[in-house]
Amino acid sequence: MKRCMMVVLGLSLIVGVAVSQGEEMWKMHVHRSGGTDEYLLAEVDSVTFSRLAPPMVTVPPGVFVMGDGEAYCGEDEHEVTLTRDFYICQHAVTNQEYLDAVQWAYDKGHVTATTTSVLDNLNGSTERLLDLSRLGCEIQFDGAGSFYLRESPSSYAQSAYPSGYDPADHPVKEVTWYGSVRYCDWLSLQAGLPRAYEHPGDWSCNNGDPYGADGYRLPTDAEREYAAQWDDERLFPWGDEAPDCSRANFIDDGYCVGWTSPVGSYPDAPETLGLSDMAGNVLEWSNDWHVCDLGTDPVIDPVGPGSGSDRVRGGGSWHSGVAYHLSCAHRGLNNPSYSSSYVGFRAARTVSP
Rank of each mutant, 00 (worst) to 15 (best):
S146M: 10
S146F: 09
F147K: 03
Y148N: 08
Y148F: 15
R150K: 14
S152Q: 09
Q158C: 02
S159K: 14
S159L: 08
A160E: 10
A160F: 02
P162K: 07
G164V: 02
G164P: 03
G164I: 01
Y165R: 07
Y165H: 05
Y165G: 08
P167L: 03
H170M: 13
H170C: 02
V172K: 01
T176P: 14
S180I: 05
Y183W: 11
D185K: 06
W186C: 08
L187V: 03
L187W: 06
L189Q: 12
Q190W: 00
G192C: 05
P194Y: 11
H199N: 15
H199V: 10
C205F: 01
N206Y: 12
N207Y: 11
D209A: 14
P210F: 02
D214H: 12
D214C: 09
G215N: 07
P219T: 09
T220M: 10
A222W: 03
E223K: 07
E223G: 06
R224Y: 12
Y226K: 11
A227L: 08
A228M: 12
A228N: 13
W230D: 05
D232V: 14
F236P: 03
P237G: 11
P237I: 14
P237M: 13
E241C: 07
N249H: 02
F250I: 00
I251F: 04
I251T: 12
D252V: 01
D252E: 15
G254H: 03
V257E: 10
G258D: 10
W259V: 04
S261F: 00
V263F: 06
Y266I: 03
P270C: 09
T272Y: 07
D277G: 13
M278H: 12
G280T: 02
N281S: 08
V282K: 14
L283S: 02
E284V: 05
